[in-house]
């Protein structure tokens, strides 16, 4: 299990380009499900890639269990990308096998069963629908029993019932494995439904506008309480989803900084 401490000062892709991330800091506790919500282009994916060790950290630090991140992350990490990113020349089974070479075939079959892909292990990704390919990528992410799971808008461009089914699969697996999760989305409903805590990012360069615990009881359904909670949040913080807040509370800003 792993907790995260993030304290980025800034991030840009080149010295002559504007920053994609501004000063930004927060903690993620062990087993916590944290969502990052913000308009597109605020560097949410960049932040995830930095945590995953795919992007360099120029100024600032990321700590895993108080250990400074240098190079590959010091824990078992899984990443569900925006696109399923399956190897088209490997079958579903081989795709899962790729990330866990030592796993027994029955474990892989069990995982496929859990995401509702029983009997699809010999199919190639192109033979599956978009939703099924995403399920394979969810299965792949949980098969390695990760300490930290990163998700980058995994349910975008899926039809509503399909997305809902995959969300509940994700929640089930999260409850079972008790993984630390960082979830990037621009869909507030999704964030409220799934996470323990939601961080709102400003428009570019991204900084944390608001750090909000979600104290709704689980399982959460889109009912009156849910809508009231959301309405209350948005009325208190107008412009939150557009990435602008007139009054940035100092409390939320300092929370994760050392």
């Amino acid at each position: 299990m792993v907790n995260l401490n993030i304290a980025i000062e800034r991030k840009s892709y080149a010295s002559n380009m504007p920053d994609v991330l501004g000063p930004l800091g927060f903690n993620v506790a062990q087993g916590e499900f944290v969502s990052l919500v913000g308009p597109s282009g605020t560097g949410k994916s960049t932040l995830l890639n930095m945590i995953a060790g795919l992007e360099s950290i120029e100024a600032g630090s990321i700590r895993f269990n108080d250990q400074l991140l240098k190079g590959p992350p010091p824990c078992k990490l899984s990443y569900i990308f925006q696109q399923p990113r399956l190897m088209p020349w490997l079958t579903v089974f081989e795709n899962l096998r790729l990330v866990m070479p030592d796993s027994a075939p029955f474990e892989i079959e069990k995982m496929l069963d859990k995401v509702g892909l029983k009997g699809k292990s010999d199919c190639y990704p192109k033979q599956l629908s978009g939703g099924m390919q995403r399920r394979v990528s969810i299965a792949r992410a949980f098969l390695t029993r990760p300490d930290l799971l990163l998700l980058d808008e995994p349910f975008v461009s899926l039809d509503a019932p399909n997305a809902q089914r995959l969300r509940s699969i994700l929640l089930e697996l999260w409850l079972e494995h008790k993984t630390t999760v960082v979830f990037v989305t621009h869909d507030l409903n999704e964030a409220i439904q799934l996470s323990d805590r939601v961080l709102f990012l400003s428009s570019s360069p991204g900084t944390v506008l608001l750090d909000k615990d979600i104290d709704l009881p689980r399982p959460r359904i889109d009912d009156v309480h849910f809508q009231n909670w959301k309405k209350h949040l948005l009325s208190q913080n107008p412009g939150l989803l557009e990435g602008q807040v007139s009054d940035v509370s100092s409390e939320s800003f300092s929370r994760g900084f050392i």
Binding site: G53, L54, F81, Q83, R85, M87, L98, T144
Partner: peptide, 10 residues
């Protein structure tokens, strides 16, 4: 993108 998958999953 696919190489990143291999990198992330070690």
């Amino acid at each position: 993108d696919l190489l990143q998958v291999a990198q992330v999953f070690n």
